[in-house]
Design a protein around this nucleic acid. Structure first.
Length: 262
DNA sequence: ATGCCGGGTGGAACCCGA
């Protein structure tokens, strides 16, 4: 089973590229981030014509996530649970479903908050969101099932994951708190699919639109697929689709695809 | 480079991204 994650930076602005990629890469399951539209504006029919089932957790202008699957989607959850009752969240950043394949797999698609600038409520929101993810992931791992938590984590895990570390020292994506929360998530027993299958340094997934970041290869690795032990046992490979960054009107992120032997 | 590009909103200039 081929499972992909891609921050598309507006699904409707990018629709031609996105559909062409789906036709050639043919993922069985894909999670998309930053669709930047409400559910009614998501191009559901275009994906259905390619044979996908569609689940959307949209939002006007900002954020928004979706899941596409060639197998039926069951037990769809929209939004990450809260640590305390009565809390509300207007930001659409989490979607989860069970992929009803011969061997079922639970897949979560996340768009983790950016958190910049430091010293503001945005960074607090990022860290609080990571605490919620930690708690929810702990519960999912207790199910002892194949599980994939994929998406734009907005965290540079290690110094090998950034071309110019000094430039990111003051950035929320590279703070010790952000990296520590990501490490704590992995320490629950989740495996970074790219590190397990490949692990080559500088496996970037994002290049800024500005300052010639792409031609100069000034990238960062922030799009990740974390696997439960039951999924990691079946990991056959991970591919970063760098070529997408060279297309006309590209997203600033490229797809990352994990192949599972189930 | 706290804004160099790019998307969305709303109908110009501004918010946001990472």
């Amino acid at each position: 089973m081929r499972i992909a994650t891609w921050n598309v930076n507006s699904v409707n602005a990018r629709l031609e590229n996105v559909l062409a990629w789906f036709e050639s890469a043919a993922p069985d399951v894909a999670v998309l981030q930053e669709i930047k539209c409400v559910d009614e504006k998501f191009p559901t029919e275009a994906f259905e014509r390619l044979g996908y089932n569609v689940a959307v957790h949209g939002q006007k202008t900002y954020n928004g996530v979706a899941m596409l699957s060639k197998y039926p989607l069951e037990d769809v959850r929209r939004g990450l649970p809260f640590l305390h009752d009565g809390e509300v969240d207007e930001q659409s950043r989490y979607i989860e479903a069970v992929i009803a394949a011969p061997t079922p797999v639970r897949v979560a698609g996340i768009y983790l908050p950016n958190g910049n600038p430091l010293g503001t409520e945005k960074f607090d929101y990022k860290l609080a969101w990571m605490r919620r993810l930690q708690a929810h992931a702990q519960g999912l791992l207790a199910l002892e099932e194949p599980l994939v938590i994929a998406g734009d984590y907005n965290v540079i895990p290690e110094v090998e994951d950034v071309a110019n570390p000094e430039a990111w020292l003051g950035d929320a994506l590279f703070q010790p708190e952000s990296r520590g929360a990501f490490r704590a998530l992995k320490n629950l027993g989740l495996v970074d699919a790219y590190m397990q299958a490949d692990g080559a340094p500088h496996g970037y997934t994002f290049w800024d639109y500005q300052a010639g970041a792409w031609p100069r290869n000034l990238g960062i690795r922030i799009d990740h697929l974390l696997l439960s032990p039951q999924a990691a046992d079946k990991l056959a490979g991970v591919t970063i689709h760098r070529d997408e960054r060279d297309k006309e009107k590209p997203s600033d992120h490229v797809p990352v695809v994990a192949e599972l032997a189930l």
